[in-house]
Design a protein around this nucleic acid. Structure first.
Length: 408
RNA sequence: GGGGGAAUUCCAGAGCGGUCAAAUGGGGCAGACUGUAAAUCUGUUGUCACUGACUUCGGUGGUUCGAAUCCACCUUCCCCCA
């Protein structure tokens, strides 16, 4: 099976400008493609991860990837799929985020001569002259068409600033620029980027009379139509300091039944035959599939060792008997103890399991706190400092949140 | 440039002088049921020293015994006309 067919079978392809041409280029390793990443945070998240996987897949098939870091476009802010304007970021934040992105990407993709290229669009966008740009590029865009674009539609009700309106032009210019300087003939991106990407192919056609191609990756949605990779606390990050490998593992271990196979197909590198075999699984058997999904992804993102630790920890906690060594933990400073004891409420707050005393109190009253497998029923309960030595104690909040607290 | 409207707790959205820590829904958290799933049901959801006190309703002042509610100014946003 060739790469294009594989991508299709995995359900990764959402929209393409010219299927025949793209298939031809990609399958023969003739594509020089780019994917842009705007530095909106100091870590990549699951959405970016999909794009990186796609890069890797295509690179393995002999194509050349360009990872574009949006140091310039980040200054503008993409309005696609948003109902409000992004917070404007300072130049320093953008620079910091770019650096973080770069480090993380290097773990997935091989960069170097004849391998993948990494560029930052700040390099050319920041130098643009307004009037020149308007005459050269602005003349090629129809405002009428732009206003019809899907990515701005949502903003028509709430308001769209001129700053953001220009985002499409910046992104189009990127493609145009790299088409000429790097021979980049294809752009990939999330499906929400479709209209921005078409802007680029259109610009190339008008300015240079040449064809360039665009393809979007299916957005990872759960069966309820919500974007995956988000939790109540925010995105699922790839940075182990922001989302620990254990939490990362747990996120995937807990996806809904209806979504497991789709995730495995889209996100892992397991052979399709193997995945098709799993397709027949149902009911509690799917738990096995979820374990595979969680393990595979953790392995890709954090390495084999971390994946095994996370799996071992999860199995231990939920099935009983395993090691608790790798679960999230907190070292309690001696100051938290009074007369060698710490109260249950204070303990929950100190570990970050509850944001306030009130919430901690409620949790205990509702029977949601366990310490070393003993339910805590009294909000006035306290624990001896000595119990926290060595392994410490294991606190369980609700059914799924485990935390170890210890002192040195 | 002219006219009109709006800003409420995580979100949406009621409240329009005291009975408001503020209806209702969503989300979150917890409990029951389960397969670490979904659905369902129940409780809970400002802070603290929690049968009590304190701080909240865009901002700043003012009226009043008393303001989320009335007035003035400011800020932001939306709509209509140009």
């Amino acid at each position: 099976m060739q790469i294009y067919e594989e991508l299709k079978a995995r359900g990764l392809i959402a929209q393409v400008t010219d299927e025949e041409e793209i298939r031809e280029l990609v399958n023969n390793g003739k594509a020089v493609f780019y994917i842009g990443f705007d530095p909106t945070a100091d870590s990549l998240h699951v959405g970016h991860f999909m794009a990186l996987c796609l890069m890797k897949r295509l690179q393995m098939a002999g194509n050349r990837p360009i990872a574009l870091i949006g140091g310039g476009t980040g200054m503008v802010g993409d309005p696609s799929g948003r109902t409000d304007m992004r917070q404007m970021m300072t130049t320093e934040t953008i620079q910091h985020n770019c650096d973080c992105f770069k480090k993380q990407m290097e773990r997935f993709i091989e960069f170097g001569p004849d391998k993948a290229i990494m560029v930052n669009n700040a390099g050319w966008l920041m130098k643009l002259n307004y009037i020149e740009l308007l005459r050269e590029v602005g003349a090629c865009f129809s405002v009428n068409n732009m206003l019809r674009a899907e990515c701005y539609k949502q903003r028509m009700e709430k308001g769209l600033s001129f700053l953001e309106f220009n985002y499409m032009i910046m992104q189009s210019y990127d493609f145009y620029h790299m088409f000429q300087t790097l021979g980049c003939n294809m752009q990939f991106g999330g499906d929400d980027q479709w209209s921005n990407m078409l802007g680029g192919t259109e610009l190339i056609r008008r300015k240079l009379g040449k064809d360039a191609y665009a393809m979007t990756i299916t957005l990872l949605m759960n069966s309820e139509g919500k974007k995956m990779g988000k939790t109540a606390k925010g995105a699922v990050w790839l940075d182990p300091n922001k989302t620990t490998p254990f939490e990362f593992y747990q996120y995937w271990r807990n996806v809904g039944d209806a979504d497991v196979l789709k995730c495995i197909r889209m996100l892992t590198f397991l052979p399709l035959e193997e995945i098709d075999a799993m397709d027949k699984w149902e009911g509690s058997q799917l738990n096995r599939a979820k374990e595979i999904l969680a393990y595979e992804l953790t392995k890709l993102v954090h390495g084999k060792e971390e994946a095994e630790k996370a799996q071992e920890t999860a199995r231990g906690l939920f099935a009983g008997g395993g090691s608790a060594e790798h679960m999230p933990s907190t070292e309690l400073p001696a100051g938290k103890f009074e007369d060698g004891k710490i109260g249950a409420i204070a303990l929950l707050v100190a570990c970050g399991l509850c944001p306030s005393n009130g919430e901690a109190r409620r949790l205990i009253q509702q029977g949601g706190m366990m310490v070393n497998d003993q339910k805590v029923t009294d909000i006035a309960a306290s624990f001896d400092q000595a119990d926290f030595l060595k392994e410490g104690i294991i606190i369980k909040k609700g059914k799924k949140v485990f935390h170890r607290a210890f002192i040195k």
